[in-house]
């Protein structure tokens, strides 16, 4: 099966350097301080943020900064293969740790001493780029909750198939086992916060793919920013000038 046709179209009709369509919704859950739904193509992720509030376990509260907790869960129907739910698996621990790492660098934790910020992520449909979608959804939820952050964090994935760097792989393209890179970036500060690369490749290929992923991050950041501004304007319009 060829992943890039001679005309330069991928199996889902995109160009090699084209992101999937992004969609952001806010305030989807009522009980939490901030919530967001992030959709990239078919990949759909919910994120909810509770905080900053008093730490659940008093002994864990840190005296000079906030404690960030992260929970990851994916629905049993999120992938094609029917999978038995096993509770906390290794993959959920790993992904939760990655999202927490990205958020610890983003949230200004020194401004919230002895508080706890808890982020819960639920994957509804996993069609490639799940790590990136989780980080983006968490970022949107944190911004919706009004928690002060150093900068927006935007994540994107990229890969290398048939001697060509491809942006934002979907599940079919990622399942081939080729190089896949996931990058999370602070766009305004231009700093790479999270970087995961898998599968063997030369350093030059890695550099090309990572550069492409960074551009994808910047594009995703732009889209997220627009959605956030739109949401804030609508809230302000309803609330009035109080």
């Amino acid at each position: 099966m060829e992943f890039v046709s001679p005309e330069g179209l991928r199996i889902d009709g995109r160009r090699p350097q084209e992101l999937r369509a992004l969609q952001c919704k806010f305030g989807v859950l009522s009980c939490c301080d901030g919530s967001a739904l992030f959709q990239a193509g078919n990949t759909k992720v919910f994120a909810a943020v509770y905080g900053p509030r008093v730490a659940d376990i008093r002994g864990q509260a840190l005296h000079d900064r906030a404690l960030i907790k992260c929970e990851y869960a994916h629905a049993a129907f999120s992938t094609g293969a029917a999978r038995r739910r096993r509770g906390r698996s290794r993959k959920s621990t790993e992904l939760a740790a990655l999202v927490r790492g990205a958020l610890e660098q983003t949230i200004l934790v020194e401004l919230l001493p002895r508080a706890q910020v808890e982020v819960c992520i639920q994957v509804l449909f996993a069609d490639g780029g799940v790590t990136a979608a989780c980080i983006n959804a968490a970022m949107l939820a944190v911004a919706d909750a009004g928690i002060p952050v150093r900068d927006m964090v935007a994540a994107c994935g990229a890969g290398h198939l048939e001697a060509m760097p491809l942006l934002d792989l979907n599940h079919t393209e990622a399942a081939t086992g080729g190089l896949e890179v996931c990058v999370a970036l602070h766009p305004a500060l231009d700093r790479v916060v999270l970087l995961q690369a898998d599968a063997k490749a030369s350093v030059d290929t890695l550099e090309a793919v990572t550069t492409l992923a960074l551009q994808g991050c910047k594009a995703a950041a732009g889209a997220m920013r627009e959605a956030l501004l739109q949401h804030v304007r609508s809230l302000a319009a309803r609330r009035g000038a109080i």
Binding site: E104, V181, D198, L206
Partner: peptide, 19 residues
């Protein structure tokens, strides 16, 4: 050749530094 890269959070660095 590079088999894997692992940077799970932590302080941000620029891409040139990473390479």
């Amino acid at each position: 050749e590079v088999c894997a890269l692992h940077k799970p959070g932590g302080i941000g660095i620029s891409l040139s530094q990473t390479m």
